[in-house]
Simulated assay, not measured.
Amino acid sequence: MDPSPRAQRPTALVLSLGGTIAMAAQETGHGGVAPRLAAEDLVAAVPEIAEVAVLELRDFRKVPGAWLEIDDIAAVAKLLNEQAAAGTTGFVITQGTDTLEEVAYLLDLLYEGAAPVVVTGAMRNAQMAGADGPANLLAAVRTAVSTQARDMGVLVAFADELHAARHVQKTHSTSPSAFSSPGAGPIGHLVEGQPRFHFALGRSPHVALPLDRRASVEVLEATLGSEGAFLQAAKSLEGLVVAAFGAGHVPQTWAPQLGDLASRIPVVLTSRTGAGSVLTGTYDFGPGSETDLLGRGLINGGHMGPRKARLLLLALLRSGADQAAIQAAFAAHR
């Protein structure tokens, strides 16, 4: 019997993109898992969800997280914007954890609605002891229909923690508690099955759809003694993100090449450390210091990590933003 009248329960759209949460052993092969389960299968494993919301289920993709593309996520964002305008209470997206932090952040840039969007997945597939997908899915649905989660942008639900898309990172390759928010901490937790928020964040400025222009943006990481051989290849790009040492430093031999690139394409300076901000004028030891690089025209990425800075720059370029708009966007997102 239906546990509560349908009319009294909120509506939520569950989009399945694949990933570990949807993986099971293949009928042929060497025993490894691959995406096989549909959204209906995921929800059927958690009967309690029926008490929380009336669900619409869609299998949007059925691929590993590593296979997702920018155009896939732009299509998801377009659908979310349309459904939010039509009155859907909340949204849950299940996907692979390899790219979960990047998908959540890109959606946060592109999604314009107030209805909560919660991204989740699993570190243990459904055939493993202690599979975490069902609990994460239930937590995500409960958060997606929570009035407290409205207008908070895109959230990530994992291991009973709630993280803001702009801060969340995958920080372990296999742990069920793989996600954290360095420098910020979780925005909330699930307590006795209900989301409780510790603080709220203002929404980040949006990037307008469609992303119909083509652009190539890559990340180049500074390493000890690197000769910067890939800087030559960067000349073919439309944008570059530098994952610099510490507070925004690179080998001195990189500085002139980066300055030359910055005169032709947007080059964003970020830190490879995982937390903290690029500085603006503390170090001035000459070529390769943050003072020198910013003086050569690089854009200060602030506290943004290199992967998310790449997504912001790529989305801006693909939406048609010019250099002034890109500069303003990074200043606003810092």
Rank of each mutant, 00 (worst) to 15 (best):
69 E>F: 07
14 V>T: 07
246 G>V: 11
198 H>Q: 14
30 H>R: 14
295 G>T: 07
70 I>K: 03
179 F>D: 07
76 V>T: 01
29 G>E: 09
304 M>Q: 14
78 K>H: 10
150 R>A: 12
79 L>Q: 13
33 V>P: 00
201 L>W: 13
213 R>E: 10
218 E>V: 13
145 V>S: 03
50 A>R: 09
159 A>E: 11
104 A>D: 08
168 V>T: 14
322 D>Q: 08
71 D>W: 10
238 E>Q: 15
313 L>Y: 02
250 V>C: 09
240 L>A: 02
88 T>F: 09
17 L>I: 03
328 A>G: 01
189 H>A: 14
106 L>R: 01
302 G>W: 00
249 H>R: 13
93 I>W: 00
185 G>A: 11
5 P>R: 06
2 D>Q: 02
108 D>G: 05
20 T>Y: 09
142 R>A: 01
6 R>M: 10
243 A>D: 00
253 T>W: 03
171 T>P: 06
305 G>M: 08
262 A>R: 01
121 G>T: 00
77 A>H: 01
311 L>E: 09
98 D>L: 14
169 Q>I: 08
108 D>L: 10
255 A>H: 05
98 D>I: 11
285 F>I: 08
287 P>H: 07
211 L>D: 00
233 A>K: 15
261 L>G: 15
291 T>I: 03
3 P>Y: 04
21 I>F: 05
30 H>F: 15
28 T>G: 14
139 A>Y: 08
92 V>Y: 10
177 S>Y: 12
96 G>L: 10
309 A>F: 05
35 P>E: 10
218 E>Q: 15
2 D>Y: 02
107 L>G: 04
106 L>T: 01
279 L>A: 12
266 P>H: 06
83 Q>D: 03
256 P>R: 04
287 P>D: 12
203 R>F: 07
274 G>P: 10
140 A>F: 05
85 A>Y: 05
140 A>Y: 08
54 V>S: 13
9 R>V: 08
85 A>L: 12
32 G>V: 13
209 L>A: 05
87 G>P: 04
243 A>K: 03
67 W>E: 12
292 D>E: 15
58 R>C: 09
267 V>A: 04
295 G>K: 03
225 G>Y: 02
137 L>Q: 12
181 S>H: 06
62 K>Y: 09
92 V>A: 06
64 P>Y: 05
